[in-house]
């Protein structure tokens, strides 16, 4: 049996909504099949008021062994570093976060807000939000760069806006069943099994990417969304086209450009007007290249690929 506690900071509850829709395994499977005891969760917990307060105190003191501490949302530090804009159970949430993280065997940060600050931490960051161990790309965050939990791991970051439900439940199962040692984390403490390939990996528009055929308007079933509509699939690490959403689809399959929500810089360009859903260029060349591609090589490849493009690549082949 592994005790799990889930708290929310500066959050929209999107990751909770996502978690409750998990299928492989489901949130119920965690309890019935994998021995996870949910001590409390904002949407599922039974205790109220003093009952929650006591539970949290018991977790901090060790009276209740805390195996997994899950945090969703940013750690709010406003105003002036006090954290009083986000009080919970009688004190700033950030104080609970620090003490519970120190008491837990494993700490799991769910969603962009908990991992790197996400949308709340976008400049000018009025809530003085940060992630658990990062603020955007900078190490540190609420727990500090050197933090490791009792089991010896840093916070396990599962980013996304929201995180895919199965990324969450599969990592929780791995931790709860004693297989945390199998988890390889990347430089941003993301499980490598999910965040090594790209969003583009498995995208149904890859043939259009290869032949440099662009989608120029939303709703087009032909064309790649990278060239004009701001898709970040070629430079975003996520398995969104390998582990499909609702077991059905993905943003790019549905014609929606990837926003790069599993990367620390999300939302990109601080949401300046004109930067969302539009590929940013400099002298006609994309500012952000597909990962690992150099500008000169890109230009040469594009010319060759366009010249070689077959007629079908310029047509809608997903006919109904």
């Amino acid at each position: 049996m592994a005790n799990l506690l889930w708290l929310q900071g500066g959050a929209c509850s999107g990751n909770t909504m996502s978690f409750l829709n998990a299928e492989e395994p489901s949130a119920c499977d965690l309890v019935t099949d994998f021995g996870i005891n949910v001590l409390w969760h904002p949407s599922l917990g039974l205790e109220l008021g003093e009952g929650v307060h006591k539970l949290l105190r018991d977790c901090v003191s060790g009276e209740i062994p805390l195996d997994i501490f899950v945090f969703e949302g940013t750690v709010v530090n406003a105003p002036n570093g006090t954290g009083n804009w986000n009080r919970f159970a009688g004190r700033p949430m950030k104080d609970w976060v620090r003490e519970l993280s120190e008491a837990a065997q494993f700490v799991v940060a769910i969603g962009d807000c908990a991992t790197w600050g996400g949308i709340p931490a976008t400049a000018p960051n009025p809530s003085e939000s940060s992630g658990m161990q990062f603020l955007k790309r900078d190490r540190g965050g609420a727990l500090g760069a050197g933090f490791v939990s009792k089991a010896g791991l840093p916070a396990i970051n599962i980013p996304g806006c929201p995180a895919h439900p199965d990324w969450v439940t599969q990592i929780l199962v791995a931790v709860a069943t004693g297989r945390a040692g199998d988890l390889k984390l990347d430089e941003f403490q993301r499980p490598a099994t999910f965040f090594t390939s790209f969003t583009q990996t498995g995208c149904t528009r890859n043939m259009h990417f290869a032949y440099k055929v662009s989608a120029t308007e939303f709703g087009q079933r032909k064309g790649c969304l990278f060239y004009d509509l701001g898709c970040r699939g070629p430079m975003t690490h996520s398995p969104c086209n390998r582990i499909l959403w609702n077991r059905q689809s993905s943003k790019t399959r549905a014609g929606m450009p990837c926003l790069g929500c599993t990367e620390p810089e999300f939302p990109f360009f601080d949401l300046m007007p004109g930067t969302v859903f539009k590929t940013q260029t400099m002298m006609g060349v994309p500012k952000d290249m597909p990962t690992g591609v150099a500008k000169t090589g890109y230009i040469k490849l594009t010319a060759a690929a366009k010249a070689a493009a077959p007629a079908w690549a310029e047509q809608d082949i997903f006919v109904v």
Partner: peptide, 18 residues
């Protein structure tokens, strides 16, 4: 400045076969 030729045939908006 870029010393980069900018013909339609390499542009993303260009349909080669049409």
């Amino acid at each position: 400045e870029a010393e980069l030729a900018q013909p339609c045939e390499t542009c993303m908006y260009y349909l080669v076969h049409r």
